[in-house]
Nucleic acid binder design. Structure first.
Lengths: 118, 118
DNA sequence: TCCTTAGTTCAAAAGTTATTGAACAATTGG
DNA sequence: CCAATTGTTCAATAACTTTTGAACTAAGGA
């Protein structure tokens, strides 16, 4: 019923960095950060890839300790493990998110990408 | 004579994170940070791998924009691109280094590893 | 000039990661 | 119960990454 997550002290720096070193996953994290407080289900991210592919990327994020997934009915409610990451690697998540927000090369979740003026 | 480096504005967040998501490269960065100011040549890192393998990892770091390599005679003097990284991704390098310094799972450059008391 | 030191390049092998489609499981609503 | 929704698992494939040894280049010193 509940999915496996690492404990806070099991979260590994190289694994977290490696997992964030992928544009799709960085876009997921950026979107989660922009909706912090709300729990999103996997379907919210379908702009970023196929259902199967998102299942794969979301599992990577969860197994690395970046996100938490709670089973609610047929949904998995996904949240950022911000407090745990801040405790383990102070400042890291903030700086990654700040940089990701400014990155026009990352895929976007909304229906449209960054607007480029004519 | 001079090796290729990305400009500051060409440094990519996912590429930097991906490159840092490797224990050997994180150990290189941690050691560079601990000797900041001094320019180290590749041989200083031989504890972390074979000569060929270090050439590979150091090229990855350089191509990602994390380090700078200056050719001086037969040596490549390696430094962290701290100012460029701070300008591009404020706070990121500091938080990564701080976390890496505390990570006993990373390989170490000195002759001995972390001491574990009996 | 010859030898050494420093580091790169190349090709091969091994290992890992990303992506896909088809099939599956579990819950919810009619 | 039946159908729809949500998401997983599996196997296959493609693509990339890491590691290795042998061969190489380029500079420096004897």
């Amino acid at each position: 019923m509940t999915l496996p997550h690492p404990n806070t002290d099991q979260i590994s720096l190289p694994i977290v960095l490696g997992v964030l070193g992928d544009p799709t996953r960085l876009a997921i994290v950026r979107y989660l950060a922009s909706k912090e407080g709300m729990a999103l289900n996997c379907s919210q991210f379908l702009d970023l890839g196929s259902k199967t592919n998102l299942s794969y990327h979301l599992a990577k994020l969860r197994e690395a300790g970046v996100t938490r997934a709670e089973v609610v009915g047929t949904n998995r409610m996904i949240t950022l493990r911000r407090a745990d990451l801040d405790a383990r690697f102070p400042g890291l998540l903030d700086s990654v998110i700040a940089a990701a927000v400014d990155d026009p090369a990352l895929p976007a979740v909304g229906g449209h990408d960054i607007e480029v003026p004519a």
